[in-house]
């Protein structure tokens, strides 16, 4: 791998929310800054920039990751999905997003994109979690407004609905 100078701007080819995209970034640029300031994807929020609060969570190749602990150059050739990808082109909320609305799982909405990106992946891996497991997963996300109850309820309700749907299909 060639050594990069600090100033050398890098071309990053990647898939962003299902579309092939190209952007330029300095080697030191964080993925969170790249997404927000270069690509204009402002649904990725920045809360602490040291990997604690979880607001900037996106999915890289389908796995929930902190974009503030990732350099932009690291996503070259990879797939990045942000909260904007969930509702898709049809602008229809996913069942998880809909449950956040129904169960009042948000107030200011700043932490919400990160939680949605984590929870979306989490439910794929753990379709039938206990409340304690959901709360444990949420320990990577700070919500300063709610009492977490609405968030937990929204995730639990989504899991339950999906279980009911799949057992009805069988």
């Amino acid at each position: 791998m060639p050594k990069l100078s600090q100033e050398a701007v890098q071309k990053i080819n990647f898939t962003l929310n299902g579309e092939a995209e190209t952007g330029m970034a300095e080697p030191r640029m964080l993925l969170s800054d790249f997404l927000r300031n270069v690509m204009g994807v402002t649904g990725c929020h920045v809360g602490c920039e040291h990997g604690v609060c979880g607001a900037c969570t996106v999915q890289i190749d389908g796995k929930a990751q902190r974009s503030c602990l990732t350099l932009a150059v690291q996503v070259d050739g990879r797939r990045v999905d942000t909260v904007e990808s969930l509702a898709g082109r049809e602008n229809e909320l996913t069942d998880l997003q809909q449950n956040f609305k129904t169960h009042h799982g948000l107030q200011c909405g700043y932490c919400t994109p990160g939680i949605l990106m984590s929870a979306t992946e989490y439910l794929q891996q753990n379709p039938d979690p206990s409340e304690a497991e959901v709360r444990d997963m949420l320990s990577g996300h700070l919500c300063r407004c709610t009492g977490y109850a609405g968030i937990v309820n929204a995730i639990m309700a989504t899991a339950k609905e999906r279980q009911e749907k799949s057992s009805a299909a069988e």
Binding site: T42, G43, V83
Partner: peptide, 21 residues
Amino acid sequence: RSVPRPNAKRLLSGRGTFTDD
């Protein structure tokens, strides 16, 4: 009545406008 907030969809879609945006 517990009416869902009209602005919830905007925030859930990542389409809010916070100052830094």
